[in-house]
Design a protein around this nucleic acid. Structure first.
Length: 426
RNA sequence: GGAGGAGUGGCAGAGUCUGGUUUAUUGCACCGGUCUUGAAAACCGGCGUACCCGAGAGGGUACCGGGGGUUCGAAUCCCUCCUCCUCCGCCA
């Protein structure tokens, strides 16, 4: 959520950013509507405060009169104050309405895009920020996609998942399960080496937490919801991990907070079926190691660079062909100012699969989270939040299986062998 | 799940029974100052968050776990929810 103060002072900058997100002129009205509601809210606040100040004075006076035994005068004053009570109730309700209305408008406005975000309508317009220079794996015509490899070697079973739960809940078994666990450990160890504190958070979160990182209200439909307990299954570790710092004021200005967490992620993703979503390409439950950072606004873009380097390092150690996209205005997420996507090449499908999304949210999340820090003078400012996948497991497994298939089985990259305990799935 | 107890500022902890000079006592921590070669101690002063008004100085409002209510007035009384502690039950 943008700060109302920023909106008030920079309406044109906000509108320019919305245009870059391909909003039409009519939709831009929300900016002026928010500013109008804010003016109304401030007006009402001023009136209410004045009225309450008067009531407070009267209440004190009444107390004083009683103590002095001047009951008659006290009763008279009570009569007079009673009328202003109705008025203040009215004002209070009007103020609540204005605040709620303003909040609705603010929640509808996405983050301001970073200057480097390219123009564009959608996926096709994303900028290739770093292309893959090397050769793409040439597997020949009879290479198997990972879902067939999974069956062939008995390591992935989608039918079994469908039986136990439903479509989109794969079962890993044997060396497949072991490979999954090896990747999780590998990613966590790499993150630890890079200075990230490991977190094991709850997998179900309450409404306040889901709101904090922006899943509510904009992505409510994507989360599994446990009605009986009013809790949501997390769609990513970003949600519980970032919320560790909800309502926190960091005391020193030279902070840099780096956290990592492995969690299963649950996404309803009600969408298309077909080749694009076959196998592990898109599932309702997948494992992911996330990295989260909380940074001073002056340093957040340096941190973003570091995160890109970190993810690059992982993919190189896994020997996977990858490229980095800088998302265009039309494809950048609601809460993000700048997002880089990492894609790996899955040789049998001959497709690039998104395996990581690394974003700087600037103050968009921290405003909702009330996540602040004190500067050298003790003044409070919103911190910047960032996060990235490092990495999303399911599609990494898909690419590893496909690219490394040989007549003698599936080769495990050297960096992973210490974790799997085997160098081949056959 | 059942019974009981408790949630007050960064921390500790009073105030709640009996509503009103309580603009929440006190201590610790923290910041500034005096003293000191320096530090400690002592002493003096400061010390929350959000919003509104104001060029500023400053002023106002709200906040004692969350929400609602009673009242001219609520940390204090009532309702409700949450969390924690103790005991019981269930349980990996």
């Amino acid at each position: 959520m943008l700060e109302i103060k920023f909106l008030r002072e920079n309406p044109e900058a906000v509108k320019a950013s919305l245009r870059k997100r391909n909003w039409d002129e009519e939709a831009l009205q929300v900016v002026d509507e928010a500013i109008a509601l804010d003016a109304e809210r401030r007006q009402l606040q001023t009136e209410l405060d004045a009225l309450l100040a008067e009531s407070n004075r009267a209440a004190k006076e009444i107390g004083k009169l009683y103590r002095e035994g001047r009951r008659e005068e006290a009763e008279q004053l009570k009569q007079r104050v009673a009328t202003s009570k109705a008025k203040s109730k009215e004002l209070e309700e009007a103020l609540e309405r204005a605040k709620a209305g303003l909040e609705d408008k603010l929640l509808a406005i996405p983050n301001i895009l970073h200057a480097s975000v390219p123009e564009g309508k959608g996926e096709a317009d994303n900028e290739v920020f770093q292309a893959w220079e090397g050769p793409l794996p040439d597997l020949g015509g009879d290479a198997l996609p990972h879902w067939d490899l999974g069956t062939k070697y008995g390591i992935l079973d989608f039918g079994l998942g469908a039986k136990i739960t439903g479509s989109g809940f794969p079962v890993f078994r044997g060396k497949g399960a072991r490979l999954e666990r090896a990747l999780i450990s590998f990613f966590l160890d790499e993150a630890a080496r890079a200075g990230y504190e490991e977190i094991i958070p709850p997998l179900l979160v309450n409404k306040a937490t889901a709101r904090g990182t922006g899943q509510l209200p904009d992505k409510e439909g994507q989360m599994y919801y446990v009605e009986r307990d009013d809790l949501y299954l997390i769609p990513t570790a970003e949600v519980p991990v970032t919320n560790i710092y909800r309502d926190v004021i960091i005391d020193k200005p030279d902070f840099s907070i780096k956290m990592t967490g492995y969690t299963p992620c649950f996404r309803r993703e009600a969408g298309a079926h077909g080749a694009e979503v076959r196998g592990l390409n898109r599932v309702h439950q997948f494992d992911k190691v996330e990295i989260v950072r909380i940074e001073h606004p002056d340093r957040s873009y340096d941190a973003l660079e570091e995160m890109l380097d970190h993810v690059r390092g992982l993919l190189e150690k896994l020997e996977l062909p990858y490229r980095i996209l800088r998302l265009c205005g039309g494809d950048t997420g609601f809460t993000s100012a700048l997002t880089y996507d990492f894609e790996v090449y899955a040789g049998a499908q001959r497709r690039w699969l998104e395996v990581s999304s690394v974003s700087n949210f600037e103050t968009f999340q921290s405003n909702r989270l009330q996540l602040r820090f004190r500067d050298e003078k003790g003044k409070r400012h919103l911190a910047h939040t960032l996060n990235g996948s490092a990495l999303a497991l399911a599609r990494i497994v898909a690419a590893l299986l496909e690219n490394n298939q040989t007549p003698d089985g599936i080769r495990i990259p050297a960096a992973l062998v210490p974790y799997t305990g085997f160098d081949r799935i056959s």
